[in-house]
Amino acid sequence: MDAASTMTGPVLLRHAVHPLLDGFVAGIVGFRERSGDVVTRRQQAGSLIPVILSSGPRLEVTALSEGTGVGTHGSFVAGFMPGHATTAFSGEQLCVQIYLTPLGVQRLLALPGRELAHRIVDLADAAPFFGERFLDELWSCDTWEGRFAQLDRALIARLDHGVDSEPFVVWMWEQIRRTGGRARIADLVERTGWSQRHVTSLFTEQVGLGPKLASRIVRFEHASSALRSSPTASVAAEFGYADQSHLAREVRWFSGRTVTELKRIAPVTPQAAIGIRVDRAAPHPAT
Rank of each mutant, 00 (worst) to 15 (best):
L123G: 01
A124M: 11
A124E: 15
A127E: 07
F129N: 01
F129P: 03
F129E: 03
F130V: 06
G131E: 11
G131R: 10
F134H: 07
F134I: 04
D136S: 07
D136V: 02
D136I: 02
D136Q: 12
W139Y: 06
T143W: 07
W144A: 14
G146H: 12
R147K: 15
F148H: 04
A149P: 05
Q150T: 02
D152E: 15
A157H: 09
R158M: 02
G162V: 06
S165Q: 05
E166K: 05
P167R: 03
P167N: 01
P167A: 02
V169G: 04
W171T: 04
M172H: 01
Q175K: 15
R177L: 09
R177P: 02
R178V: 09
A186G: 14
L188I: 05
E190H: 12
R191G: 08
T192K: 05
S195C: 10
S201Y: 12
F203N: 00
T204F: 07
T204H: 07
E205H: 13
Q206M: 01
L209F: 05
P211H: 11
P211K: 02
P211S: 00
A214V: 03
A214L: 06
S215V: 02
R216Y: 06
R216N: 09
I217E: 11
R219P: 05
F220D: 06
H222F: 06
H222Y: 09
A223Q: 03
